[in-house]
Amino acid sequence: MATAAKKSTFEKTLVTILLVVGGIVVSIPFFWMVSSSFKPESEVLQIPPTIFPENPTLANYVELFQSLNFAVYLRNTLIIVVFSFLGLLFNAMAGYGFAKFEFKGREKIFYLVLATMMIPGQVTMIPVYLLLNEMGLTNTMAGIILPGLAVAFSIFLFRQFMTTIPTDLIEAARLDGAGEFYIFFRLIMPVAKPIFAVQGILTFIAAWNSFLWPLIIANDEGLYTLSVGLSLLQGQYANNFALQMAGAAFMVVPIIIIFSFFQKFIVEGFTMSGIK
């Protein structure tokens, strides 16, 4: 905060202690999830509870895949993830279009895009369901994927970043005879790597966690995502906490690993997008 000389040892110790204590409190749910997921069913109901599993077992994880359909849920979730990256590409293209082209109606269309950010999800939820119902897309993968592809906030962030790319660079490529899509994929995308990194992580997390829309649209268990499957498991095995914790850990741990690798991009991304 201030010059290093002023930082007394006492102050530094106090800040560190506060951070560590707060961090432990915040992590208790994660710790408890991982620890309980390796306990046999009888041990999770034991009082007093054991902090670390006394008889560690992988049985809960095996059961997720053998007696439950977690492999199917995982496949569906991965399909959603893949298509959400197509959506990310659409958002990036739109951001580029708004940032680097002059065209009729640009301002108006852009304001319309921004306006959609203010509409609460609850308002559009019912009409979108009715629309998909009319198109015959309820209970299909397309119905789950389509509504989430375009994200106004993402378009906005891409536009903010791409306005900072020098126009001369694009003009020079045009003079060399490069096509517009060639310029976008070969010139703009490499330059805009930082914003793609941030948006890529956020898109992955959102798609991996997608719950409400698959729940509304999918009637078939064959279309359930991991989240929907996990909530089904919570209902069916209400007292088998060990199995529930294994399901939760299977959802949460990959996200935490990916995030800890890329977390520096997220903080930089916020600074970069000018939300200060």
């Binding site: 915040v26 989240s227 909530s231």
Partner: peptide, 22 residues
């Protein structure tokens, strides 16, 4: 610790419900 404090916000809501329910 920055990561530790950020973690809950990227945790799946159903996983959160399952963990906190317990």
């Amino acid at each position: 610790f920055r990561s530790v404090y950020y973690m809950p916000s990227i945790t799946n809501i159903i996983a959160v419900a399952v963990i906190w329910g317990y």
